[in-house]
Amino acid sequence: MASTQPEFATLLRAWRDRLSPADAGFTVTDGRRAPGLRREELAQLAGLSVDYVLRLEQGRARNPSAQVVGALARTLQLARPERDQLYRSAGLLPPRDGTVSTHVPPGIQRLAARLGDVPIGVFAADWTLVWWNSTWSALHGDPTVLPAVERNLVRALFGDGAAHAAMLPVRSERGQDAFAASIVADLKDAASRYPADVRLDRLVRELRETSDAFAELWATRTTAAQHTTDQKTIRHPEVGDILLDCDVLVVPGADLRMVTYTAAAGSSDADKLGLLHITGLRTAHSLRTHQR
């Protein structure tokens, strides 16, 4: 498919100007002149450099990858027809039906952005992290430091790459074995629903070859419960052990999972979570200031 780069640049600028900063999770101040997202805010949310976003908007960066276009489409909260238009303007075919979708509907992003004090991560059907807020980053570490392919919970549990190395020590109330089994059960269900998804097939084949624990769980005929609700103790390098309720909310019609962490009001764990929320806001503000 031939690239129509000028159209891509025009769409990118127009849709950045259209998106309300509040809907993207940013605090709007009186002195703000830009009607939509600033370029550095788009870059931060999409996990790209400001310079690269600038070159895309000026038409100087050619042939952005499907991964980059997908990240921009999610950040800009595009509806599916607009997402497909952005892919085509970059000379790419839009994601096909029958494959795992990484599209996060705008309404879900707006809802999650308004719950900024709660760590929220949105995962695709194969447990790839596709959206998160600053409090999630403060709790689990910044996902943007990982290669996009490593932003996957299954890789964190069973792989031997960057995702596994970055995962904080976590103790599950249900037991770590039960938690791992539930994640594999979710992946088996996804594989049965998306048999034509190349990336999902590659993930399963790779982990079956490199992880005995994964291969054993994948081969078992016993159906484990899917991952829904749990209580976890996370060993955080700054606040120490923090006990949180982990809830997994399914997004109807989108095949996404919204993972949230909360603590009982008035508890020391709630205080620690509040501290991490402030840390996340400060980090995001510092990043925006540095990028100007």
Score class of each variant (00 low, 15 high):
residue 86 L to K: 04
residue 88 R to F: 08
residue 92 L to W: 00
residue 92 L to V: 02
residue 93 L to D: 14
residue 93 L to V: 14
residue 94 P to C: 07
residue 96 R to F: 05
residue 97 D to H: 11
residue 98 G to C: 12
residue 99 T to E: 13
residue 99 T to R: 11
residue 99 T to K: 08
residue 100 V to C: 03
residue 100 V to F: 01
residue 100 V to M: 06
residue 101 S to K: 11
residue 102 T to P: 14
residue 102 T to S: 15
residue 102 T to C: 15
residue 105 P to M: 06
residue 105 P to I: 07
residue 106 P to A: 01
residue 106 P to K: 01
residue 107 G to A: 08
residue 107 G to D: 07
residue 107 G to N: 02
residue 108 I to H: 07
residue 108 I to P: 01
residue 108 I to M: 11
residue 109 Q to D: 09
residue 110 R to Q: 11
residue 111 L to R: 03
residue 113 A to I: 10
residue 114 R to C: 04
residue 114 R to P: 00
residue 115 L to I: 03
residue 115 L to Q: 12
residue 116 G to S: 15
residue 117 D to Q: 14
residue 119 P to R: 06
residue 120 I to F: 08
residue 122 V to T: 11
residue 123 F to R: 12
residue 126 D to L: 12
residue 126 D to Y: 06
residue 126 D to W: 04
residue 128 T to Y: 12
residue 129 L to I: 09
residue 129 L to H: 06
residue 129 L to G: 07
residue 130 V to L: 08
residue 131 W to C: 11
residue 131 W to D: 12
residue 132 W to C: 15
residue 132 W to D: 14
residue 134 S to P: 10
residue 135 T to S: 13
residue 136 W to P: 09
residue 136 W to E: 10
residue 138 A to C: 05
residue 139 L to T: 01
residue 139 L to I: 00
residue 141 G to M: 00
